Simulated scan of single mutants.
Amino acid sequence: MELKRSEMQLIEAVSTIITEEGFSKIGINKIARTAGCDKVLIYRYFGNLDGLITTWAKKHDFYIQAYDAFINKVETVSQANLREITKEILLSQLHFTKENKMHQELLLWELSGGLKFNAIRNLREENGHKLQKMLELKADTKGLNISMYITLLIASINYIVLSTLEYPQFNGIDFSNDTSWTIYESTLCDYIDMLFEKINL
């Protein structure tokens, strides 16, 4: 029980430092002091700092979580319902990114070029890509590069959410207004419909 508490303290310390001081202040000694733990526990529980940050990210990065959250649905979905599960996954990404402050901070730090923890990026890429490949295997893509279409939608979600955090006006649209987000969701679904109509699903 003591072990679990210490692990949780270290993981929570990462969130505390990011919230109060930003990703640039993340370090072994800083985390240990904030957690009130000996820094040797970071190596014992997580192997190294990268391992601790990756464990933290599993709670705060959408696509690291997405594989476990959606794989059962994707494996059992019928071809006729592929577009609906695609909508569900991308709308979940939108809601998660809008609501999870830690995920926002992680993406912003990564986009700034400051992210040194490659394990986070690698795990996100691995999990997200596996999920997408499962969806593609279910569909007859007729040679269409679905990955590129989905990539554009994923990037749109991340960019619109992050860019409107401080400046809600984007291309003449006021994203401080809930109605704008409702229209954005509807438009996102329209693009998914267009994609699946291209492959007659």
Rank of each mutant, 00 (worst) to 15 (best):
L135A: 12
L137A: 11
M134V: 00
W109L: 06
A139S: 07
L82Y: 01
L111R: 15
L94K: 07
A80P: 07
E125F: 11
W109E: 09
L94F: 01
G113L: 02
L106A: 14
L111N: 15
L106I: 09
H103K: 07
I120M: 09
R124H: 05
L135M: 15
K133Y: 03
K116C: 05
S112E: 14
I120C: 05
Q104P: 03
K116V: 02
Q104C: 02
F117V: 14
I89A: 11
L111K: 13
Q132L: 13
I89L: 08
K138Y: 00
K101D: 12
L108P: 01
L123Q: 13
L107Q: 04
E99A: 15
N81E: 14
K130A: 15
L106N: 13
D140H: 01
F117C: 14
L108S: 12
L123T: 05
E84A: 09
F117G: 03
L137C: 06
S112I: 04
K101E: 08
T86D: 08
N81F: 08
L111I: 08
K87F: 00
F117W: 11
L123W: 00
Q132G: 11
R83S: 06
I89K: 12
L115N: 15
L107V: 01
E126Q: 11
L94M: 12
L94E: 06
E105F: 04
S92G: 11
R83Q: 12
S112D: 05
E105W: 02
R121S: 08
L111M: 12
A139V: 01
Q132F: 07
L135D: 09
F96V: 03
K98V: 03
L131N: 15
I85A: 07
S112P: 11
L111G: 15
G143W: 03
L107W: 00
L94D: 07
T86E: 01
H95P: 01
L131P: 14
K87P: 12
Q132P: 02
E126M: 08
I85Y: 05
T86P: 09
G143M: 03
F117L: 08
E84S: 11
